[in-house]
Amino acid sequence: MPSSRKATASAVTVAALGLSVLTAWPAAAHGTMGDPVSRVAQCYAEGPESPESAACEAAVAAGGTQALYDWNGIRIGDVAGRHRESIPDGRLCSAGNEEFKGLDLARADWPATRVHGGSYTFKYRVTAPHKGTFTVYATKPGYDPVKRLAWADLDLEHPVAQVTDPVAAGGFYTFTGTLPERSGRHLLYAVWQRSDSPEAFYSCSDVDFGGADGGSAPVPSASAPSEEQIAAGADKSTIEHHGHGDDDAHTSAKPTAAGPAEQPPAPPANQPEADGSSVHLAETGAPAGTSTLAIGGAAALAVGSAALFLSVRRRAAGGGRRR
């Protein structure tokens, strides 16, 4: 093959590789349990800047307000079903994510949804529908809310609900399950494992079955955020809303009239946390260590390759004319 054709073929190959990196960039889905309302949704409904309950106030003190504006982003991008291996005991509600560490606080006063044993209709609030399986676990009898949630606290052998590919309608996935017979405070742990990506989402919902010791403090009632509240806080979120993103799927929240949206500090790629779990890229569903630098590099690679292709073509054409 003449050298000009080899160079042209190489340029085309490199350009194709660069473009494939861009087009293969995964989209992110987002959501949290809406009924029974999750901790993060409850605290967001109270107002990130001035939460009403003591538990949500403590969560903000521990992790800041940004976690509540990012209410639909408790996730691990590359977990692929390895939930127990990826999330350490005591950090289930945050999915091991430092931003959401306030949700892991062990307290007996988290606002809770009143429930009873038997059939229950779950509503999962979703901002980007995707295929996958929802699994909901209940805590075992004897669960102690003043101890941090561990995997051993959950009845993993008997999920209270499990459904694959439900149809989203009105901003919710709705599916039914069966709650066990319990009394007093318990917790429901929901895992949404996508089938079109290794990404999974997690949420903790506090529930009250009633019938507990009459001397215990009354349980604050939980309530989900309204559509107006969700819309009002979207500009302060670093999580994409409205389908797969806002105007640009790789951007964070848009600035508000009062100034730029609050942004959490970006962790170094592949930086291990103290417990050995990895920091995961927040927006893309990509494995840990993937960064926006990869996007920029791929784009530059594609553009540079295209320029090389055109340069080779010009030289080849010029050489032909000289002969």
Results as ranks from 00 to 15, higher is better:
residue 3 S to A: 12
residue 189 Y to H: 09
residue 181 E to V: 09
residue 82 R to P: 01
residue 323 R to C: 09
residue 50 S to N: 08
residue 234 A to D: 06
residue 85 E to W: 01
residue 137 Y to T: 05
residue 106 A to Q: 09
residue 206 D to A: 15
residue 300 A to R: 05
residue 87 I to M: 09
residue 112 A to D: 03
residue 262 E to P: 09
residue 183 S to C: 00
residue 320 G to I: 09
residue 321 R to H: 14
residue 140 K to I: 13
residue 22 L to Q: 05
residue 169 A to P: 04
residue 118 G to T: 09
residue 241 H to K: 14
residue 220 P to D: 14
residue 175 F to T: 07
residue 45 A to L: 01
residue 97 N to D: 11
residue 253 A to H: 10
residue 175 F to Q: 07
residue 263 Q to P: 06
residue 120 Y to I: 02
residue 44 Y to N: 14
residue 317 A to H: 05
residue 316 A to Q: 13
residue 252 S to H: 14
residue 53 S to R: 03
residue 267 P to R: 03
residue 126 V to K: 00
residue 285 G to N: 12
residue 204 C to I: 05
residue 64 G to Y: 03
residue 322 R to C: 07
residue 264 P to R: 15
residue 64 G to W: 00
residue 311 S to M: 10
residue 279 V to L: 10
residue 157 E to I: 00
residue 114 R to I: 09
residue 100 F to W: 12
residue 136 V to L: 05
residue 303 V to S: 06
residue 222 A to D: 05
residue 103 L to R: 02
residue 69 Y to R: 05
residue 137 Y to S: 02
residue 308 L to P: 01
residue 76 I to S: 02
residue 6 K to N: 14
residue 138 A to L: 05
residue 274 A to G: 12
residue 95 A to M: 05
residue 41 A to S: 06
residue 67 A to K: 02
residue 212 A to R: 08
residue 292 T to W: 12
residue 230 I to F: 03
residue 187 L to I: 07
residue 261 A to T: 12
residue 38 S to I: 01
residue 33 M to E: 13
residue 151 W to V: 05
residue 189 Y to P: 05
residue 84 R to P: 10
residue 171 G to R: 03
residue 1 M to K: 07
residue 25 W to I: 03
residue 198 P to T: 12
residue 71 W to P: 02
residue 276 G to T: 04
residue 313 R to N: 08
residue 149 L to N: 03
residue 109 D to P: 03
residue 159 P to L: 13
residue 29 A to K: 01
residue 229 Q to M: 11
residue 245 G to M: 12
residue 250 H to M: 10
residue 71 W to G: 02
residue 139 T to G: 10
residue 278 S to Q: 10
residue 289 G to Q: 09
residue 89 D to Y: 06
residue 12 V to N: 02
residue 76 I to G: 02
residue 211 G to K: 15
residue 173 Y to W: 10
residue 3 S to T: 03
residue 236 K to P: 00
residue 128 A to G: 11
residue 55 A to Q: 01
residue 60 V to E: 00
residue 223 S to W: 08
residue 123 K to H: 10
residue 268 P to G: 13
residue 154 L to R: 11
residue 8 T to G: 12
residue 46 E to K: 04
residue 155 D to P: 11
residue 185 R to A: 15
residue 39 R to E: 03
residue 173 Y to L: 08
residue 171 G to N: 07
residue 144 D to H: 04
residue 276 G to V: 02
residue 70 D to H: 06
residue 259 G to Q: 05
residue 167 V to M: 15
residue 282 A to K: 02
residue 121 T to G: 03
